[in-house]
Amino acid sequence: MKILHVITSLELGGAEKLLLDLIPAQKKQGIDVELLVLDLNGEVFLDEYKKRGIKIYVPEVNNKKSYKNIFQIARIIKEGKYDIIHTHLIHSQIWVSLARYMAKEPIYMTTEHSTHNRRRESSIFKILDKFIYSAYEKIIAISEATARELINWTGVSLKKIEIVSNGVSLRSFMGKARERKGNKIIMVSRFHKSKDHITVLRALAKLPKEYTLTFVGEGETEESVKREALMLNLGDRVQFLGYSNSVAALLKRHDIAIQSSNFEGFGISALEAMASGTPIVATNVEGLANVVDDAGLLFELGNVQDLVDKIKLLEDPSFYFQKSKDGIKNSLKYSIETTAKKYIEIYKGE
């Protein structure tokens, strides 16, 4: 069986991180897997993909918004003689849904990675999305919330949807239940409208000065978050680290992980934190809350005081140790090997 995953870019994001672990895991289970990336501008993962021996194609146009992708994708699919074409994120979903009319042999699937996006704020895009998703024989949702929101938006049949939770490479992140050593908070997340870094900053301003905060990630809202940190006079307590490929080590050097999101399909960063033994405090939004559950602490979206209160609960040594232990136990349900196996079962079922 030969699979081609197609993704919009290799920028910092959950889908990009998922494929970085998923493709090698699928290859280890005997599947021939390759990757097509529409646009390498702004990439942060390319070297990591190459280190893992993943064969990557890039259309000559190297522009996720160009209609020329249709023809170049169709050519790559025909030449590769793939059994399954599996798309991720909107631009790849759009162009592949059109390219399939010129490359009809493979089975086409897509994964829905989020409960919300900006297109769903305008009814104009509903017609477009209905067309896009109708082009795929199977749609894989990363959570029940993701599936439900997609059905509500497009009316796609439930029979067409499979739910497969994301996974992580537990061996890379797995830690031991640990005691608290300090007051270092970390949030690993791209700077994007789907994330809520501002609430984390405002919570830090209310916490004792011994608390520090590290943001790991890059993105479009980074400058506005930096301005907020300056206005709150937090310059000496906040570090903007940028992109890092050493997240596992960073998590283990911090005491508390935060995942603050306006909406979230799943929450890979929260899962990585739990696997490392770093207690997680996350926004109580669908998708993310389902992953964290009772293994971490949940706070109300945008509620600064609620976040402060949840962080302070972890000042109790026994409670902190228990949450570290709970997180590790919860993470074991989400191994990348299990995720890869479930995807392969779906491929073979088609």
Rank of each mutant, 00 (worst) to 15 (best):
K138C: 13
W95S: 05
V61T: 08
R120Q: 09
T111W: 06
I56V: 14
S143H: 05
A25D: 09
K51E: 11
I73P: 06
I70V: 11
R148I: 13
V33R: 03
K50S: 06
I90Y: 11
E144V: 04
E105G: 08
Q93W: 09
I124H: 10
L38S: 04
V37H: 04
I56R: 01
M102G: 11
S114K: 04
Y101T: 12
K50Q: 12
I140L: 12
E79G: 03
L46V: 11
R148M: 14
P24A: 09
E34N: 06
L20K: 00
L38E: 03
D83H: 12
I84R: 02
S97H: 07
S134N: 03
P106R: 00
S92I: 07
F45N: 08
R148F: 15
N69W: 01
L22H: 02
I76W: 02
K51T: 07
E43H: 00
Q72H: 09
I70E: 03
F125C: 07
T110K: 10
L150F: 07
K27S: 10
E34F: 01
R148W: 12
D83Y: 13
E60D: 05
Q29I: 01
A147C: 13
I85L: 12
D39P: 04
L40E: 00
K17G: 13
F131C: 12
F45Q: 04
E60L: 03
V58L: 11
E79M: 02
F45V: 03
K64G: 03
R119C: 11
G30H: 04
E112L: 15
D47S: 12
I127R: 06
N41I: 12
I139N: 06
I31S: 13
K68V: 10
V96I: 01
S134Q: 04
G42P: 11
K28N: 14
P106C: 07
I90T: 10
Y108A: 08
F131E: 05
F131V: 11
H88Q: 00
E34M: 07
A147K: 09
Y136K: 00
A103C: 02
E112R: 10
P106A: 14
K104F: 05
V44W: 06
A147Y: 10
I127Q: 08
I31T: 11
L36S: 07
Q29C: 06
A15L: 05
G80P: 10
D39M: 00
L40C: 07
L89I: 01
L46R: 06
G80M: 01
I23T: 03
Y67N: 02
D47T: 14
